[in-house]
């Protein structure tokens, strides 16, 4: 009887040790990743770790670029990622999806906020549950998220204004088509408007319209603008579908080359229009970077690899990460458009 007990105890201890050692082994790994131990790099994760990207209007092409970046980082780190989001442009939907994701207890969440205040509550919930959260593209500043990666929308607007001025020779009537009410669009618009006012006094902003994120609505609005202001020389559209809609209207009005278009983002429709010469240029955001570095940030937070000060940054109430990261903007024209087609 005694022997049996001793045997059982030894076996239990053995299994226990092996079990502990096995904690970070993956079962179906493509890469030859051995169990983690402090001797090798901490940047080697396990496929059991899951990081989730949550978006809204989840089906559009724009997020693909960001997710590609996230996937690239995940590959380098050896972890898994998932893409999800609200189908429609609906606060209730995105909040619900985020909360459902939280209940799955992922290792980190990279989220873009349809509305800063509405999303603050669920983001806080995630943080309270110990899940690291980083926002990208559209921020929720009051939520307590660790960092926010985006192209500075204001700077993008500034760049757009300057490029449009170059195209129109610094003078003439121009228009702006944007999505009022969305923070990022408002900032782009602000950058555009203020740069025009400051640096190009001979250019006049004659109309600001709502593109409603819809090609058809934008085409109509653009058509109306060209009717009302027949001397229009240029337009800045703060969103891809808006740009495509404006391009259609300009084509139909036979004013290609007379009305210059500077648009935003690099979806296929926009790129095609650039190569066809209808859209003069578009501003590419660093979406890939948002995904890549966002993933990196989450990993570092999850594995507690950040040491900005000696000691625990949590108790010291020091920010572990740069709070805002500008992923920059590139002007895409006919010359470099080919590079931006997603494969």
């Amino acid at each position: 009887m005694k022997k049996l007990i001793i045997l059982l105890v030894i076996l239990t201890l053995m299994f226990g040790l092996i079990g502990c050692g096995q904690k970070t082994t993956d079962t179906n790994s493509k890469q030859a990743t051995p169990t983690s131990n402090t001797a090798s790099s901490p940047l080697i994760g396990s496929k059991n770790e899951k990081y989730v990207m949550v978006t809204f209007v989840s089906g559009i092409e724009y997020w693909k670029g960001a997710f590609k970046g996230m996937e690239a980082a995940a590959k380098n780190l050896g972890v898994s990622v998932q893409y999800t989001g609200a189908n429609e442009y609906d606060i209730n939907q995105e909040v619900t999806v985020l909360e459902q994701v939280i209940s799955q207890k992922p290792d980190g969440i990279l989220v873009t906020a349809i509305n800063p205040d509405a999303m603050a509550v669920p983001i806080k919930k995630a943080l309270d549950a110990g899940i690291p959260v980083v926002t990208f593209d559209a921020d929720s500043p009051k939520s307590g998220r660790y960092s926010f990666l985006a192209t500075s929308n204001y700077q993008a607007g500034v760049t757009a204004a300057r490029y449009l001025a170059k195209l129109t020779g610094g003078k003439g009537e121009v228009a702006l088509i944007t999505i009022p009410g969305q923070l990022n669009h408002e900032e782009r618009a602000a950058g555009f408007k203020e740069t025009l006012a400051k640096e190009f006094p001979e250019m006049k902003l004659v109309s600001v319209q709502d593109g409603k994120s819809d090609q058809v609505a934008t085409a109509q609005a653009m058509g109306a603008i060209m009717q009302t202001f027949p001397n229009l020389v240029g337009v800045f559209t703060t969103e891809a579908s808006t740009g495509v809609g404006a391009a259609t209207a300009v084509k139909e009005a036979n004013k290609v080359g007379k009305v210059h278009i500077v648009s935003f983002d690099t979806d296929k429709g926009t790129l095609d229009n650039i190569k066809a010469g209808v859209i003069d240029a578009t501003l590419a955001q660093g979406t890939w970077h948002m995904g890549y570095w966002g993933m990196m940030f989450l990993y570092h937070l999850k594995h507690d690899l950040l040491k900005p000060i000696d000691g625990d940054w949590k108790t010291a109430k020091v920010l572990p990460l740069p709070p805002v990261v500008d992923t920059g903007v590139t002007v895409v024209t006919k010359e470099n458009a080919d590079f931006y087609y997603s494969k």
Binding site: D90, I91, N115, D117, G181
Partner: peptide, 10 residues
């Protein structure tokens, strides 16, 4: 939500 959006309920 503490936010009134005109796009709610679409």
């Amino acid at each position: 939500f503490g936010v009134a959006t005109p796009t709610a309920g679409v």
